[in-house]
Computed example of a mutant assay.
Amino acid sequence: MSSTAEPFRLSVFVPPVVAVVADHLGALADAGVDLIVSRTNSSAQQLTELRAGVVDAVVTAMDNVIEWTSSGCRTVVVAQLEATTALSLVARPSIDDVGALAGAAIGVDAFANGFSMLVRHLIRARSVPDVRWVEAGGVRERFAALEGGSVDATLLGSPFSEAARAAGFRDLGRVDSLFADFPGQGLVVAAERMPKLAPVLTRLLRAFDRAIAWSADAGPEVGCDLLMDAGYPGAAARSAWDCRPRTLVPTAAGRERIARMRRDLGLLPAGVDPEELWAPGLVAAATRPGAPESVGDRS
Results as ranks from 00 to 15, higher is better:
residue 204 L to Q: 04
residue 77 V to P: 04
residue 31 A to M: 07
residue 103 G to V: 13
residue 94 S to G: 10
residue 87 L to E: 04
residue 298 R to A: 12
residue 135 E to F: 10
residue 190 A to F: 11
residue 212 I to T: 07
residue 142 R to N: 14
residue 124 R to T: 11
residue 299 S to Y: 08
residue 256 E to L: 13
residue 50 L to Y: 03
residue 292 P to A: 03
residue 48 T to Y: 04
residue 160 F to E: 14
residue 273 D to G: 06
residue 88 S to G: 08
residue 298 R to D: 12
residue 210 R to K: 11
residue 172 L to V: 04
residue 38 S to C: 04
residue 224 C to D: 10
residue 127 S to A: 15
residue 212 I to D: 02
residue 176 D to N: 12
residue 207 A to K: 07
residue 113 N to S: 15
residue 230 A to K: 01
residue 39 R to F: 12
residue 11 S to W: 07
residue 275 E to N: 15
residue 149 G to M: 03
residue 213 A to K: 12
residue 34 D to F: 04
residue 288 R to C: 09
residue 280 P to G: 12
residue 113 N to T: 14
residue 286 A to T: 10
residue 272 V to N: 01
residue 162 E to W: 10
residue 106 I to P: 02
residue 158 S to Q: 14
residue 9 R to F: 07
residue 258 I to M: 12
residue 152 D to C: 05
residue 239 S to D: 14
residue 63 D to W: 04
residue 158 S to D: 13
residue 77 V to K: 01
residue 184 G to R: 10
residue 137 G to A: 11
residue 149 G to K: 04
residue 128 V to Y: 01
residue 202 T to R: 15
residue 203 R to M: 05
residue 259 A to S: 15
residue 225 D to M: 06
residue 185 Q to H: 15
residue 33 V to P: 10
residue 53 G to H: 00
residue 21 V to A: 00
residue 109 D to Y: 02
residue 169 F to N: 09
residue 71 S to C: 09
residue 295 V to D: 15
residue 5 A to T: 02
residue 127 S to N: 14
residue 200 V to F: 00
residue 226 L to A: 02
residue 16 P to F: 00
residue 287 T to A: 08
residue 37 V to S: 00
residue 125 A to Y: 09
residue 16 P to I: 03
residue 193 R to A: 04
residue 63 D to L: 06
residue 17 V to N: 00
residue 225 D to R: 15
residue 86 A to R: 15
residue 161 S to H: 09
residue 138 G to E: 08
residue 35 L to M: 03
residue 205 L to E: 05
residue 264 D to E: 13
residue 234 G to V: 10
residue 107 G to S: 06
residue 49 E to H: 12
residue 265 L to Y: 02
residue 292 P to K: 05
residue 277 L to F: 07
residue 193 R to G: 03
residue 292 P to C: 05
residue 134 V to S: 03
residue 254 G to H: 05
residue 42 S to Q: 02
residue 266 G to M: 02
residue 187 L to Y: 02
residue 193 R to D: 08
residue 127 S to G: 08
residue 208 F to S: 09
residue 100 A to E: 13
residue 148 G to N: 11
residue 225 D to A: 14
residue 284 A to K: 11
residue 17 V to R: 02
residue 259 A to C: 10
residue 31 A to P: 06
residue 296 G to A: 05
residue 288 R to I: 05
residue 74 R to D: 07
residue 120 R to N: 03
residue 86 A to W: 11
residue 112 A to F: 02
residue 293 E to W: 11
residue 297 D to T: 07
residue 209 D to C: 00
residue 293 E to P: 01
residue 84 T to V: 12
residue 88 S to P: 09
residue 298 R to I: 13
residue 195 P to E: 08
residue 241 W to L: 09
residue 11 S to Q: 14
residue 246 R to Y: 03
residue 18 V to N: 00
residue 130 D to W: 01
residue 94 S to E: 13
residue 211 A to W: 01
residue 15 P to N: 07
residue 30 D to T: 02
residue 298 R to M: 13
residue 58 V to M: 05
residue 33 V to W: 05
residue 154 T to Q: 07
residue 201 L to T: 07
residue 111 F to G: 05
residue 93 P to C: 11
residue 50 L to E: 04
residue 248 L to D: 06
residue 62 M to I: 10
